[in-house]
């Protein structure tokens, strides 16, 4: 009887002791993997930007794309904080969805609402917000 209870006590103690154990050693110093620049939404937005927008708005959004040469007015410099900061995400979504005319801007900017999904436009807006910074701070949700 006493042996059985002692055995139970030992077992219980062992269970408590084990639960605090972790198996992986801490990350070795000096080894690090490159942190990706952009999070998922911005990355997908960038892919859409490169496919649909880059030709007019340019690789970094400065409005200097290949197609811009012969256009008047010139496409917007999207990386300019003076343009981007005052506009809310809803403003940008409306322009992308319905074209430049909806914000009193040029109809040279077409309406993309029937071409892009709502999620696609959302991702584009997330990407646009990353444009004014020269280097992107690491995405907080990645390691």
């Amino acid at each position: 009887m006493i042996g059985l209870t002692l055995a139970l006590a030992v077992l219980g103690g062992a269970l408590v002791a084990r639960s605090g154990e972790t198996a992986t050693p801490p990350e070795p110093p000096g080894w690090s993997m490159p942190v990706p620049e952009l999070g998922y939404n911005a990355r997908e937005g960038r892919a859409l930007f490169r496919h649909y927008c880059l030709t007019c708005h340019g690789e970094e959004g400065h409005g200097d794309g290949l197609n811009a040469y012969n256009l008047d007015p010139k496409p917007r410099d999207l990386a300019d904080p003076a343009f981007l900061t005052p506009r809310t995400d809803e403003d940008l979504t409306a322009i992308i969805r319905s074209g430049g005319g909806v914000a009193g801007l040029s109809t040279g900017m077409p309406p993309w609402g029937r071409t892009l999904s709502e999620r696609g436009i959302l991702n584009l807006v997330v990407y646009l917000r990353t444009l004014p910074q020269p280097t992107q701070e690491p995405n907080p949700s990645s390691e």
Partner: peptide, 9 residues
């Protein structure tokens, strides 16, 4: 004693 140990476990 065994009761106490059982309850603790």
């Amino acid at each position: 004693i065994s009761s106490v140990i059982t309850v603790v476990v």
